[in-house]
Computed example of a mutant assay.
Amino acid sequence: MSQPSRYLKLPFSFDLERLRAELTRLEASQWISHFNTSAYENNWLCLPLRAVDGRIDHIMPVNEGQFQDTVLLQDCPYMREVIDFFQCEKTSIRLMSLEAGGIIKEHRDDATSLEDGITRLHIPINTTPDVLFRIDGEEVHFSAGDTWYLNASCLHAVRNPGTQARVHLMLDCVSNAWLENVFLEAGWVARPKSKYPDSSINDDNVLVVIEQLRASGHSAGIRIADELDAIRLAG
């Protein structure tokens, strides 16, 4: 049986010359250091093109506010064309720059997969073949101008040993039927659906979870424990 897709190259490529021309116009903008400073070495910078309330100082990918395009996108008609090509709602859209010699340490971004509802796409603008993702132990190069899916809930890291910054256009898309059809045609293998209501619960840990819920003594916890036990016994 094929393993669920941790990454996937989609059949869409874009004009690097036009993307790089617009990136050059944005280079003087106020790039923001990534908020998780313990997760990287050297500079890992972000430039928000779509953010909560359209704020150019806001790079958090998830928030309770309303996502809107920032003013930076107004001067980037081709990037806008690329973004609009994908027939789905978008939340956060950022340019992500990893400085030459930079390292993004292994980490997970929870609930960022097609199955979880947020599909994270990367379109590399500036990169070299020696820039590698490490995804659940496998090293992969995301080629320039192409469209790549990363299941960011997998353990992943990035290393840029080159002499120039690696810059990706990164789109967080709301999963829908259009995306799922594109992925299936590209050879995507879905993650098996969890039989438990919480995807973090599985047959290996369900008994521990049930025991903890019952030990809490709360009626709601005991009720959930009983429901989990019934699902477990039903197989």
Rank of each mutant, 00 (worst) to 15 (best):
Q3F: 13
S13T: 15
S13H: 12
E22F: 01
L26N: 07
S29G: 08
Q30L: 14
N36P: 09
T37A: 11
S38H: 14
A39Y: 12
Y40M: 06
N43C: 12
N43H: 14
N43E: 15
W44L: 08
L47K: 05
P48H: 02
P48W: 00
L49A: 03
D57H: 09
I59D: 03
M60Y: 12
M60P: 05
V62T: 13
E64A: 14
Q66K: 13
Q66Y: 12
F67E: 04
D69V: 11
T70I: 02
L73T: 02
L73V: 02
Q74S: 13
Y78I: 03
M79I: 10
E81A: 12
F85I: 05
F85R: 11
F86I: 07
K90S: 03
T91L: 10
I93G: 00
I93Q: 00
R94N: 10
M96D: 12
S97D: 06
L98P: 04
L98I: 05
E99S: 10
E99N: 07
A100N: 04
G102E: 01
G102C: 05
I103A: 07
I104D: 03
I104P: 01
H107G: 04
L114S: 09
E115W: 06
E115Q: 11
T119F: 00
T128H: 11
D130P: 06
L132E: 10
I135G: 05
I135S: 04
I135F: 06
S143Q: 14
S143A: 15
G145C: 02
W148S: 02
Y149E: 05
S153V: 10
L155S: 13
A157E: 10
V158L: 08
R159A: 14
N160P: 06
P161W: 01
G162Q: 09
T163P: 08
T163D: 15
V167F: 04
H168M: 06
M170W: 02
L171R: 00
D172W: 00
C173L: 06
N176R: 01
A177K: 11
W178L: 10
W178I: 09
W188N: 07
W188T: 07
W188Q: 08
P197R: 05
D198S: 12
D198M: 11
S199G: 09
I201L: 05
I201H: 05
N202Q: 09
D204G: 10
V206K: 04
V206N: 03
V206F: 05
V208L: 15
L213M: 07
S216G: 12
G217F: 08
H218T: 13
H218K: 14
S219Q: 14
I222Y: 06
D226N: 14
E227L: 15
L228P: 10
A234P: 06
A234F: 10
G235W: 03
